[in-house]
Computed example of a mutant assay.
Amino acid sequence: MNDLQNAPVSPAPAGRSTLLVVDDDAINCGILEHIFSPYYNIGMAHDGQAGLDYILERQDSLCAVLLDVVMPRMDGLQVLRQLAARGLPERIPVFLITAEASGSVMKEAYELGVMDVIGKPITPYVVLRRVQSVVELFQGRQRLRNVVQLQKADLLAQAQQIIELNRGMIEALAAAIEFRSEESGDHVRRIHDITLHLLAHTPLGRGLSDDVIEAIALASIMHDVGKIAVPDSILNKPGRLTAEEFEIMKGHTVQGARLLEQIPQLRANGAYPYAWDIARHHHERWDGRGYPDGLKGPDISLAAQVVSLADVYDALSCKRVYKDAFPREEVLRMIRTGACGCFNPWLLECFFGVEEQLSRMYRKETL
């Protein structure tokens, strides 16, 4: 008894404070309870099946399991096999306590994940030290896991803040361009929402991950960023542009792509390749008569096609410095007949399938 009194005391861990003894011998149970009760709550099961049931029902409260081998209903190795199949020995240290520690028993026990095999008769200070050392190891490992999880959560939160900051900067840049052309930032937000809706709620986005769809929608905000290079006298001209002025206006596509190329921080953003493509190609036409590269048909990326249609739809539906808003019926007629561009027939089919939902934005409703 003096050996036990001089042994180091390990406080019962919060949450996992129960040590389970699974043994059909009342004397062994009494000895083990006497050894460990000063340090842990003690659970008892007097056959293998009862022990397995106890573990499965209360696994989150267990700090260790002391498991006899020879027992009725289910022996210790059978219990251990059930625990190993569920991966529990990785989270709860299991000790085999037996007088029959043959080579085959020990070999299988260790293969199944048992932490130690303790022979009978039990030497109290030895079994106490061996069990406590392992319990403390598991506790330390769990504390380390908790710290890693907290650090991981902190890093994810910081990454999310950076993402939100980058998005805010992108939106601010795009909105500044809109203010130059005497528009509010609502235009770029609507382009974002229309693009997102078309890709997320029609077959257009089939095969695209949610992350890609979000990246394309974010990139759509920067479609007109090149207008920063267009003089105010042209950008805000209330009447029809001359041929020379229109050539300058058309240059906003190339200028936008160049501007994006010169922002190194943006290159690390997943939206960058879509933003570059959309800025340069959102005025291409399905029939090849667009600009700046005269791309035709499927040579135009899906992202640029969707933003092109979204841009036309929004431009027709809203008042601009050079025109009033068209009625919804006229907007749909002009898009359907090709009066304002030539679009992929499949794109138009998907667009008209959800246009009723899109039109709510212009009735002060939400998608």
Rank of each mutant, 00 (worst) to 15 (best):
Q255I: 01
L295C: 02
I118F: 09
R206T: 14
Q161N: 06
P238H: 08
C342S: 13
Q305N: 10
E100M: 05
I27N: 06
E261T: 05
L235C: 10
Q82S: 15
M74N: 04
M115I: 02
L302W: 02
M1R: 12
V105K: 02
L144Y: 14
W286V: 02
L260W: 12
F343R: 00
N6E: 09
F95P: 11
S133K: 13
I213D: 04
V9C: 06
G30E: 08
R336Y: 09
D3V: 07
C29P: 05
F352N: 09
L128I: 04
P273A: 06
P93A: 09
T123P: 00
E178R: 03
Y322M: 03
A271F: 06
G226F: 00
E57N: 11
R289V: 06
H252R: 05
R360I: 06
G338R: 06
E90Y: 04
R58T: 10
E100D: 13
A304K: 03
V114H: 01
S61G: 12
Y322I: 07
R285Q: 15
Y362H: 09
G140V: 07
G76H: 00
A215V: 00
G207V: 08
S220N: 03
C342H: 14
A176C: 11
G207T: 10
T253Q: 13
D3R: 01
L309M: 08
M361K: 04
E136Y: 04
M169C: 05
M74Y: 08
L19K: 00
I92Q: 11
A215S: 10
